[in-house]
Structure formats: structure tokens, C-alpha cells
Write a protein that binds this DNA or RNA. Structure first.
Lengths: 156, 156
DNA sequence: CCGATAGATGCAAACTATCGCATCTGCATG
DNA sequence: CATGCAGATGCGATAGTTTGCATCTATCGG
């Protein structure tokens, strides 16, 4: 806390969130750049942001940032398991900081979106890991199908 | 087999596959068009075709067909549960005629694709139906995560 | 603190997907 | 078989996403 020089960390990693990200990126051999810090800063758990939403917010803090950078960074964060990337069927994919896993059931017919309890998904996660050794990152699943009302309407 | 006149069916629904589709479309109040029959004809179980693949094949049989029609028709078939629509992470979504449900595990790190036994997925399907009355159409799931090798490499 | 360099960013173009609207057509009806 | 119309298609425009390449920079070694 006392004799930490600015030169110690190449960038302004003052907030704890940014510092946490910076450390995490370095740990996996990724570079820490202003763009990456700001992009992560725009995301939060519970907020479904499109790539364009993220771009708009990032631009206010970092004018001149490029759309490609936003897309590439979001994909990187997705691969690193920092954020979830989900197609809810609304045209653009949504990005969200991962906190508690949560999922959605989306009706093909009426478009209704229900929440799906992660407790129902967890056994699948466990089974996959046990059977294949594959560690699934299912933090934000979107399953399509028919809601109770539409299923009845379609069959009957 | 004997006294069936051509006028009985508005289009060339000679093959059994096409006839089956035609019947199925009519049953749910959808029209039977040449485009729809040809587009379905290009799909098969086990083949992962992109929209562009489908378009290219359809074009040889039906010159002048439009990309939009292919996209719209593929979406329709998806909603009808005839085909599966899956993002395997390769840039474009893939379409496939539904036969036996099958799923994929895709490694975020090395890109490896493993098959996932539907028997592991079925309990989730059942649980969702029991809890919410929602009937999920999970015929071709793509779950991202880390394969055994990469999971080890990442943690250790 | 400086120079070297692997890797990130900016930029433009290409690719993937969707949408609005005018026209055309399957098919139900008479 | 002729007619009407809801709905499908073609077309162009636009939105959403990815990619190749030149330039720039975070990080490492001296």
C-alpha cells in the first residue's frame, strides 16, 4: 500500500476490478491493454449487453476504439471464461459478466423467455465431466423449444 | 399406385421425402413451394451445412432462388423442428436434418469437437419439462468448455 | 531506461444474417 | 377452370460479425 510506484504496473490499474483482470490476463499470458480494461469495465453480472451496447459505452471512455477490437476482446473474454456469450434469438448475441450461472428457456413460437434453474443443469455438467473429462463452461445456456401454452396449442 | 392423377398434388412431390415434407407443411398450415422442397432436399442427417452451402446447392436445382429465401426457410424448418440450427463456433451456423439427437462439446482453447451422448442430455430435457411444462427442442446442442487435455494445461 | 518483438489494435473489406416492401403464387373457393 | 388473397419470394438495404494486413504497443531482456 505504501511504496508502490506507478512504474510497477504499466497502465492505470487503480480499481480492484481492473487490477484483478490485469492479473488474470497476465497469468494466462495475455497482454493488458487499456481497451481490454475498459471493455471489461462496461460489463456486469445481470446485464445483457450486445456488442454494440458495449462498443457505445467503451467509446465514451476511449474515443477511437474500433468495433473489431470490441468483438475480438469479447471473444477473448468468453474463451477465458470471464464472460458468457449467448444467442437469445434477438438478432444480436448478448454478453454478460459471469457471476452466478443462470439460463433461459426461449419459446420458438411466442418468443417468451423463462429462467431456467441452474440446479437442473448442474447434473449435466457433472455427467459430462465424469464421462469425458471435458469441463463444460455452461454459465448462460439458452435452450429453445415450446413453452407450456404453445406446446399445447401446437399439439392439440 | 394406379389411378393417381398428376393434378392431385400441386407440385412435383414425387419422392417420398418431398411428399412427407409436403404433408407435414400442410398439416401445420404452411404452404408447399418448390423452394422449400429443394431446400429440404439438400439437407440430410449427419451433414453440417452452412446457409451458404445450402444456397449453393439449391441454386443448381433452382437458379434465381434468393439467399433471403434460404435463410427464411431454414429458420422456418428450425421452428417446425425439422432441422437443427447450431453454432459450432466456426463463424457460420450449421443446419442439419434431425434424425437422432446428437450433441457436441467444443474446446474453447484447442477447438476440438467431441460427440456428446444424448443419454446424458435427456435427464435435463425431462427435468425441464417436469418443472416448467416447457418442451425443449434440444436435438443438436453445442456446449463450449475445455477438453480434458486443455483443462489440465489451463489449471496446471 | 532503451531497443526488439510477439502480439494487440485500427482500418477496410468481406462475410453472415435480417428486414421492408413490391411482386408473385399456392391453394381455397365458387 | 377462373378468381381472390394470405402468405411466400425476390430484391435491395441494413445490421451484425469476422478477417487480412499495416501499424502500434505491452512486455521482456539488456
Amino acid at each position: 500500500m505504501s511504496r508502490e510506484r506507478n512504474g510497477g504496473t504499466p497502465l492505470a490499474e487503480r480499481t480492484s476490478a481492473a487490477k484483478g483482470l490485469a492479473d488474470r490476463l497476465r497469468r494466462v499470458g495475455q497482454r493488458v491493454t487499456p481497451q481490454r480494461l475498459v471493455i471489461l469495465g462496461t460489463l456486469s453480472p445481470g446485464a445483457h449487453l450486445s456488442a454494440d451496447d458495449v462498443f457505445a459505452r467503451v467509446e465514451t471512455h476511449l474515443p477511437g476504439v474500433n468495433r473489431s477490437t470490441v468483438y475480438r476482446t469479447l471473444e477473448l473474454f468468453g474463451d477465458l471464461g470471464l464472460i458468457s456469450v449467448t444467442d437469445l434469438g434477438g438478432g444480436a448475441r448478448v454478453f454478460e459478466l459471469i457471476d452466478e450461472p443462470h439460463h433461459h428457456l426461449i419459446c420458438h413460437r411466442c418468443g417468451a423467455i423463462l429462467e431456467l434453474d441452474d440446479a437442473l443443469v448442474d447434473p449435466l455438467r457433472v455427467a459430462i465431466r465424469a464421462r469425458y473429462g471435458f469441463v463444460p463452461a455452461v454459465d448462460h445456456l439458452a435452450l429453445f423449444g415450446f413453452c407450456a401454452a404453445c406446446a399445447t396449442a401446437t399439439n392439440g
